[in-house]
Computed example of a mutant assay.
Amino acid sequence: MPASTQDPSRHPSQQAPGTTRTPRDLRRWRQYLADERAEAAVYRDLAGRRTGEERAILLALAEAEGRHADHWLALLGPDVGRPRRGDVRTRILALLARRFGSVFVLALAQRAEARSDYATEADATATMAADERIHEEVVRGLATRGRNRISGSFRAAVFGANDGLVSNLALVLGVGASGVAHATVLLTGIAGLLAGALSMAAGEFVSVRSQRELLAASTPDPRAREVLPHLDVDANELALVYRARGMDADEAAEHAREVLEGLDAGGAASRGPGADAPPPVPPDDVDEHEAVGSAVGAAASSFCFFASGALIPVLPYLFGLEGLTAVLVACALVGVALLATGATVGVLSGASPLRRALRQLAIGFGAAGITYVLGLAFGTTIA
Score class of each variant (00 low, 15 high):
residue 345 V to A: 13
residue 171 L to K: 07
residue 37 R to P: 02
residue 284 D to I: 13
residue 211 Q to L: 12
residue 129 A to R: 06
residue 56 A to P: 03
residue 48 G to C: 13
residue 224 A to D: 15
residue 16 A to D: 15
residue 350 G to V: 05
residue 184 T to S: 06
residue 67 R to F: 02
residue 53 E to H: 06
residue 327 V to L: 11
residue 344 T to A: 11
residue 336 V to A: 10
residue 288 E to L: 09
residue 17 P to V: 14
residue 208 V to A: 07
residue 43 Y to E: 11
residue 292 V to S: 05
residue 143 A to G: 05
residue 186 L to M: 00
residue 70 D to Y: 08
residue 211 Q to C: 04
residue 145 R to C: 04
residue 244 A to D: 14
residue 373 V to Q: 03
residue 296 V to W: 02
residue 143 A to Y: 07
residue 300 A to R: 04
residue 36 E to W: 06
residue 32 Y to N: 12
residue 280 P to C: 13
residue 90 T to E: 10
residue 349 S to M: 02
residue 329 V to N: 01
residue 305 F to D: 00
residue 210 S to E: 09
residue 97 A to T: 12
residue 33 L to R: 12
residue 152 G to P: 05
residue 1 M to D: 11
residue 337 A to W: 09
residue 232 D to V: 04
residue 12 P to H: 11
residue 239 A to T: 11
residue 105 V to D: 02
residue 18 G to L: 11
residue 11 H to P: 03
residue 286 V to D: 04
residue 66 G to P: 05
residue 204 E to G: 10
residue 146 G to H: 05
residue 104 F to T: 01
residue 278 P to E: 08
residue 64 A to K: 06
residue 200 M to Y: 14
residue 13 S to D: 14
residue 326 A to E: 05
residue 152 G to R: 00
residue 327 V to W: 03
residue 106 L to W: 06
residue 43 Y to S: 13
residue 160 G to M: 04
residue 141 G to T: 14
residue 156 A to V: 03
residue 74 A to C: 10
residue 74 A to Q: 13
residue 366 G to K: 09
residue 270 S to G: 15
residue 261 E to Y: 07
residue 246 G to S: 13
residue 227 V to P: 04
residue 76 L to N: 04
residue 363 I to Q: 00
residue 90 T to P: 02
residue 144 T to G: 11
residue 162 N to D: 04
residue 46 L to F: 01
residue 7 D to M: 08
residue 231 L to M: 14
residue 346 G to K: 09
residue 135 H to L: 00
residue 340 A to C: 09
